[in-house]
Design a protein around this nucleic acid. Sequence first.
DNA 1: CAGTCGTCAAGAGCAGTGCTCTCGTTTGTT
DNA 2: AACAAACGAGAGCACTGCTCTTGACGACTG
Lengths: 230, 230
Amino acid sequence: MTASRTARERVRAELTKEITDIARRQLATEGAGGLSLRAVAREMGMVSSAIYRYFPSRDDLLTALIIDGYNALGEAVERTEAEVPRADHLGRWLAVCHAVREWGVAHPHEYALIYGSPVPGYQAPQDTVEARIRDVAVLGRLMSDAWQAGAVRAPEEEAPRELDPDVTGFHDLMPGVPDNVIWRALTAWTTLYGWVSFEVFGQFDNTIEDRRGAFEHSMRVTAGTIGLAQ
Amino acid sequence: MTASRTARERVRAELTKEITDIARRQLATEGAGGLSLRAVAREMGMVSSAIYRYFPSRDDLLTALIIDGYNALGEAVERTEAEVPRADHLGRWLAVCHAVREWGVAHPHEYALIYGSPVPGYQAPQDTVEARIRDVAVLGRLMSDAWQAGAVRAPEEEAPRELDPDVTGFHDLMPGVPDNVIWRALTAWTTLYGWVSFEVFGQFDNTIEDRRGAFEHSMRVTAGTIGLAQ
DNA sequence: CAGTCGTCAAGAGCAGTGCTCTCGTTTGTT
DNA sequence: AACAAACGAGAGCACTGCTCTTGACGACTG
């Protein structure tokens, strides 16, 4: 009986996947604003109302694509970073940086969906929280490894005590890392995504040609900010 | 005769301004996606087709709002930075940072319009280029002043020679500043906007509560990256 | 085996959108 | 006074997200 029920549910899962696949292709070509449920239905040979059996609204489809985007980016970061020797902390950092940047320029619309302006009212936060921290978790392990290996030069400044309640959430991500280093890592994180956002969103157009080279240099400087020795 | 001609043109200018004002209010409440020419026309008591006498398309209206946004942000940065003594370079840097952040959190949708994902195909670049560099011009003068006053600690690393063609464009913005400092300033610039984008786009929700305090600390660290002494 | 109940695709329809075209009217210029 | 440009109004096209209803098929239960 489970077999027959799964027969039904399997068709449903397949159609759901087909919808998201087509939607992702539309997203890649038209952007988030051009994503149309009717166009997806048309391409599937369905009538538009049938889509609503699978996604109750356009925003729900977008939310599914957002989660997929987080996972795709997170997986790209994990995979690239895993290829670098564990002791090469600077190399791991640079691998993370280039993975983020290359995924962003390769999938600009998906990047815009997850790191650009939030398109609908708001996406469901609880559903996305597992997928969204995959990339930052990689940085956390990296920082933790580097610190415990003594490869991080301690910053001169102290972490402001009034930020204590805010920094506790990061202790799980970077076990053993002192607070002032955590704040520097977070600052570096914003540098990384600030750069990629600038590039993906066209802020470097007619300004910087050798994007990868400039990015590489900037991320090396940023590595120095975290205290990762060359 | 010019008086009579200006009579007509004055009405036109007033109506154009009224359209952009209403559009900006709609943008602030609904976001870029919810901006509707018909709704603007409705609020003005006009018929929708009449709007097209003033803006040939929705994207043109958005472009006008983008230029306005760049100018508003640039003016806010200029005004805030001008209040700090010229010799207090760190203070000027922090003033710039807080001006950007406060404008961004106060006008999230406008910020998203100019620093988020590009909504239409592409906005006219030549029309916006004058307004868009007002903020970065402030940083340029600040860096130039600080360097010439000897207040910038020179970085250890050299600027990569393959980036020479890209860095020349910044020499006008920061006269006299050596290339490696320019790249550090650009890196700091991405840190600033990366942070503000993270905050405005909700990436810090349920993560950081004392946004201003964390931002202040992060921008002080970043000042050290540029070489601005404490 | 027969009946029932839930799932599904299809179609019509509503309200809204950007944009185009045409038609009188108003306004400014020669 | 005559002409041309600019203008507001209205109708209309193609499109969107979304809702509701109808009829058919499949799966589970008596």
